[in-house]
Write a protein that binds this DNA or RNA. Structure first.
Lengths: 174, 174
DNA sequence: TCTGGATACATCCGTTGCGAGGTATTGTCG
DNA sequence: CGACAATACCTCGCAACGGATGTATCCAGA
């Protein structure tokens, strides 16, 4: 997910690590902060894999900056990851939001719609959090207010997203 | 988060690992599956820390079961973790849902309300995903339909949860 | 009779993530 | 003038996670 965010932001413009960190923090940081000790090794990984290149520039304000630019392989890799995200990227909201944030870079409406359809299929699967044997329990059946809240919130989220997904898929198809 | 779920389920009843796994899978598994290779080491960690005890029982159906029971330290530890969750447990939805699922075990309405207030404070912080400099961008200002969707969904979720939080805090206080 | 699935537990190993700490420079405010 | 925040990068070591794989039992169905 971190790698996806790095590739996504660099797809739009070359950035140095520090700026990248600020953007990632804005995107996912209030929910899940990004430690520098996670970001810099991730940048190194991507560089080693040939997905990005580094150019040292005298620092505008302080220490010298390493301006990061995606290579052509890097640009392809982002499109590949967006077109065929692993299941986790579809189901886990944090990851899914990252996919959504960069899905515009997939320059192909049918491919975009296909990704949205995977999320739609996932949300349409009947799923609960609590079961009585095999039977999913509905919010109304729980006497615990917290668990009832959990189901209520999950349901509201899901409804909002389903509406948006169906609309957007329609627009992409039409 | 895994540890919290283990402590939470065992607080309700002693279970063997396989059953524990099924419950955790029901709770968070459709979003973020739990690998056995994550669960069993986690159980060992908790056992080593003296939070749970293990009793071998001849297997009802197949291999012998290890029935896991919380120790008194384990029960205290769950209540402690629920009363004072780290910030990540408040901000990250996956983790927060786990807290919510077991918050009923915190046998003290003011303490429960305090935890809900932390989540409320977090959701009330003005936060966006995208910025123009320092100014948060509103959904309407984005021309990218996917990022617009992201903001729309996040806002809908947030609204539903805020309503529920205020109601429930009111009920706990009243 | 044999295969496959469910039950039940476990380890190995590579990757990722994070807290703590370190280095160096520039601008700001008292 | 000195302290501090912000800029900018980095490493170490541990914990956590996850895919692959292994072991063994029992039962249903082909």
């Amino acid at each position: 997910m971190l790698e996806l965010a790095i590739l996504g932001f660099l797809y739009e413009a070359p950035l140095h690590g520090y700026e990248l960190r600020k953007r990632i923090t804005a995107l996912t940081g209030h929910v899940k902060p990004v430690a520098e000790s996670t970001l810099y090794p991730a940048i190194k990984r991507l560089e080693k894999a040939g997905l990005l290149a580094r150019a040292t520039e005298p620092g505008a304000v302080a220490a010298p900056r390493h301006v990061l630019t995606l290579t052509e392989e890097g640009r392809q890799e982002l499109r590949r990851r967006l077109a065929e995200p692993p299941r986790r990227d579809i189901t886990d909201e944090n990851r899914w939001f990252t996919v959504l944030a960069f899905l515009r870079h997939l320059d192909d409406a049918p491919a975009q719609a296909a990704v949205l359809r995977r999320r739609l299929a996932f949300l349409e699967e009947p799923a609960s959090f609590f079961y009585d044997g095999d039977r999913p329990l509905r919010a109304e059946e729980l006497d615990d207010p917290f668990r009832r809240g959990l189901l209520t919130i999950a349901r509201a989220t899901s409804r909002a997203e389903l509406t948006w997904l169906r609309e957007t898929i329609g627009a992409l198809d039409g």
